[in-house]
Design a binder for these strands. Structure first.
Length: 254
DNA sequence: AAAGCTGACAACCGCAAGATC
DNA sequence: GGATCTTGCGGTTGTCAGCTT
């Protein structure tokens, strides 16, 4: 039998589920103030809250914890997410470490909203035989997309950069773990690049994800910088030619 | 005006790893 | 050393508001 997820149902153990009330929030907040974070399974015992430890932790981490930023992500945060996802993949908690005040859940939702569904829709359209590139909503206000490299110019230039573990890094950010002190430059940290993410068209091709980006004259510069950097969990980083019809752009794939 | 669609968000689930008994 | 418990993570789904048709 299908169980309604969001309704105020109780589990077999008797835990309440569904949206939290302000009273429940208050009880949980008081508990954390007194006992600190952790010991989530004890929350119900001390507060009378009929919520599982898991549910309490999630509510605290994603909604009640002090210092959380509310509201829309800034363009810089969006850019950071996109770039980190390109290197880290779906490591939402790791990505969240670079965005103070933002939760992994929030970032995950953002990504799925802006890219996941577009991919699904793209696949759907592919089935229907009408593939069209989709311009990201946030980028539509930016200037028109400029062709970077012609199809003919890059047709036979597809190349792959193996990740390199011991490169001396000069720009970008550091991964937090000791064993991954890699340095990957963010777009805006490369001299000459805009502080905002370039115009982007998103589409999918099987299970890979790629973008068409307007790098202007600095495309090769960025590729060279990026290819010097270690990309954890990514086997390759490459440059190829857009395979979509009617598009003559260079793209990056992961 | 109503129905359908879409994006944003909150919250649950399963699983895995680490901690504790 | 094994069983159990706790915690954290990533994936998924339901709801709702706003937009489009």
């Amino acid at each position: 039998m299908m169980v309604t997820m969001m309704g105020s149902l109780s589990t077999e153990k008797g835990w309440k589920k569904g949206p939290w009330t302000s009273e429940e929030d208050k009880l949980l907040t008081e508990y954390v103030c007194l006992h600190g974070e952790g010991r989530w399974s004890s929350v119900s015992k001390y507060t009378g809250l009929n919520r599982s430890g898991k549910s309490c932790r999630l509510r605290w981490v994603n909604y009640l914890r002090p210092g959380l930023k509310k509201g829309q992500l800034t363009p810089l945060e969006e850019e950071t997410i996109i770039e980190l996802h390109a290197t880290l993949g779906n490591k939402w908690s790791t990505i969240a470490k670079y965005l103070p005040g933002r939760t992994d859940n929030e970032i995950k939702n953002y990504w799925r909203t802006h890219f996941g569904k577009k991919r699904e829709r793209s696949k759907h359209e592919k089935k229907l035989g009408r593939r069209k590139p989709k311009v990201l909503k946030q980028k539509q206000q930016q200037p028109h997309i400029v062709s970077i490299t012609s199809r003919e110019e890059t047709k036979n230039q597809t190349k792959t950069f193996e990740t390199q573990n011991n490169m001396q890094q000069e720009m970008g950010f550091l991964y937090p773990t000791i064993e991954h002190q890699y340095h990957v430059p963010l777009m805006h940290e490369i001299e000459g690049f805009s502080s905002t993410w370039p115009n982007t068209i998103v589409d999918d091709d099987d299970d890979s994800w790629f973008s068409l980006w307007d790098f202007g004259e600095r495309f090769e510069d960025y590729v060279n910088q990026f290819s010097k950097c270690v990309m954890p969990n990514q086997a390759t980083f490459g440059v190829g030619v857009d395979s979509m019809q009617n598009h003559d752009k260079t793209f990056l794939f992961y």
